[in-house]
Structures are given as C-alpha cells and as structure tokens.
Simulated scan of single mutants.
Amino acid sequence: MNGRNKLLPFVGMIIAVLAQSGSMVVIKVAMKDGMNKYVLVVYSMALSTILLLPFAFFINRSERPPLTFSALCSFFLIALIGTLGQIMTYGGIELSSPTLASAMLNLIPAFTFVLALLFRMEKIYWRHSRSQAKVVGTIASMAGAFVVIFYKGPPIFKIHSSSSYNTLQFSPNLNWILGGLLCAGDSLLSSIWYIYQVSVTRKYPAVIVIVFFQVFFITIQSGLFALIVVRDPSEWELKLDMGLIVIFYQAIGAIGIRYLLQTWCVQRAGPLFCAMFKPVGIVFTVLLGSIFLGDDFYLGSLIGAVIIVVGFYAVQWGKASEEKGIQNLETPCNVAPLLQNKA
C-alpha cells in the first residue's frame, strides 16, 4: 500500500503538469488568433463548472460532511487566489512566452518552502546539512528566476522566425520582464494555494466538491473582472475557430482534470510533494511551444531554468533526508533490548 500511495500521486502530478504545460501553449494560440485573455478565462471556467456539476452533487453524496457557511467561505477564498493567479498567468504569457511562464512555475517549490516555514509546517536546523541544502536551494531557485526574467540572451535554437505576439506596446525587453514578473506572482499565489489547500481539505475532505465550488467562484469573480475590463461586446462573441477548441481544452483538461488531480494529490501527499513536479513542466512546454508555436528558446531561459531546477532538487534532497532521519528515529530497535534481557 505504501508503494501504491506514492505511485498514484506521482502519476497524478505528472498528468497535471502535462495538462498545465499544454494549457500555456493553447492560451498563446488563442490570444495570437485575437481572443481576449479575460474572456477566455470566463468561458473556460463556466464550461468547467457545468461539466463538474453532476459529479459534485452525485458522487459519494451520503459520505460527505455537511456543507457549512465556513466551508463556503474557504472555497471562496481559495477561488480568489486562483482568480488572481489566472489573470497573472494569462497576462504573463501574452507579454512573454509559454516557456518563460513554465520556467517561473519552478519557483513554486521555493515559495512553498518559505511559506511552510512561516506557518511552521517545516523546520530548519542550521547545523544540519539537510536544512542548509533546503535554504541554499531556495535561494538558488529565486536567483535562477531573476536570471530568466532579466537576462534573455540569444536564442539557442529557432524552428522558424517567430514574430512577437505581444499586444501591449512596450519594448520587447520590457514585455519580457513584465511577463516574467507576472508569472512569478502567479507562482507565489500558487504556493499560497497549495498551503491553504491543506487546511481546506482537512476541514472538508470531499475533493470533487472543493474543486466544483472553487471553479464556480472563479467563474463569478473572473466574470465580474472581465465585465469591467472588456468593454467591447464583440470580444465576447464565440466563433467556430481555434478559440472554441481552446475553451474546451481549458475547461476539461487544464481546469477540470488538473484541479481535481492537484487537490487530490495535495490531500494525499502534501504541498511540497506536489510542488516538486513543477520543473518537469518546462520540458513539456519547451517541446510543445517549439512544435506548435515555433517559439525560440533563449540562453537566459536555459541558464535560469538549470539554476532553478538545481536549487529545487537541493530542497527536495534536504526534505527527503529529513524524512528518512525521522523514520529512522521512529523505527524501534528490537534486537538490542532482547540481547540485554537475555544477559
């Protein structure tokens, strides 16, 4: 059972990361075709809410705890974190590229570790190498993120000459920096989401209900925001084009399946375990972005991503060493007492 309990969250997070990487690419495709990013969020969330509705009301209905006002407030707050993160992600991808957005996701383990320290979910013993590895790895991850944001560098490889898709009239370097900062902000919000999700799932362990209300509240929140920002009624028109395909992908894969898997994995394995899979996303995103968008991969992204990943795995080594040490301390030694008793 221990092997199965570790394998299922592992597979679940790989699928979730792949869905998120695909999401970044299709978002860029939709915006390249002229679809408004805020409208895309609203339609995707609304469709996902409709698809999740029957599952939320009929699966394991008799086994759920009562739905209280306190639980609804928790769902609303976790949805607000998700709404702000969605807005930052879409803006960051529009200004930069899916590859940079994916590189910024590698900040999530560092942010999660810092937040876990603040909320006393993690401890540091300064004289132990494992604690030193976690601190140094966290600092390295953040340093790597600054490299990705502020040093673009020459392209390493080019599929074809790709033009800029940015709609805001800034210089290319400023677009890149602003996009990176927005994506870094989304990573911070994602870390807060992971930490808070632990508390929510403990109070209300019905994952499908949590995800449904989260998506439902995000639909309302993002809808109100979009109505204020998007004034042109033609922006809300749906057409039989790539934008409609992207909405379906977002609703089913990037929102429904990914949110369910992430929430379930946080419940089963904890926030730091789930955060450790984010570096895998940059591999998926680089491949998908190169194939479907012809995105260039820049030297700064490579150097920064390598630093982030090294720092990330330093944190994970320290965490794994701590858990192994705790298990060794908790394992009773039956041999010595028996020998002593016989003597």
Score class of each variant (00 low, 15 high):
residue 32 K to D: 14
residue 1 M to A: 12
residue 294 G to N: 08
residue 87 I to M: 07
residue 169 Q to W: 14
residue 121 M to I: 08
residue 334 N to T: 15
residue 320 A to L: 05
residue 330 E to Y: 08
residue 4 R to W: 10
residue 100 L to N: 01
residue 205 P to F: 12
residue 230 V to K: 02
residue 259 Y to C: 07
residue 114 V to C: 14
residue 3 G to K: 15
residue 190 S to C: 13
residue 124 I to Q: 08
residue 112 T to S: 15
residue 135 V to H: 05
residue 128 H to G: 10
residue 342 K to A: 04
residue 311 G to K: 00
residue 249 Y to P: 03
residue 283 V to C: 13
residue 241 D to A: 09
residue 317 W to P: 02
residue 82 G to C: 13
residue 77 L to R: 05
residue 315 V to M: 15
residue 261 L to S: 01
residue 292 F to E: 08
residue 305 A to Y: 03
residue 129 S to Q: 13
residue 301 S to C: 03
residue 217 F to N: 06
residue 121 M to G: 14
residue 87 I to W: 01
residue 54 P to N: 06
residue 13 M to N: 06
residue 178 L to W: 09
residue 248 F to G: 04
residue 169 Q to T: 13
residue 244 L to T: 12
residue 70 S to P: 06
residue 79 A to C: 03
residue 101 A to D: 02
residue 333 C to I: 13
residue 326 I to R: 12
residue 64 R to M: 05
residue 195 I to G: 02
residue 42 V to W: 02
residue 164 S to G: 11
residue 294 G to R: 06
residue 215 V to T: 14
residue 22 G to F: 04
residue 28 K to I: 01
residue 49 T to Y: 04
residue 185 G to D: 00
residue 289 G to K: 01
residue 186 D to T: 15
residue 260 L to T: 03
residue 104 M to K: 04
residue 109 P to A: 14
residue 115 L to M: 08
residue 212 F to D: 02
residue 143 A to S: 10
residue 261 L to C: 04
residue 8 L to T: 10
residue 244 L to M: 12
residue 17 V to A: 11
residue 212 F to Q: 02
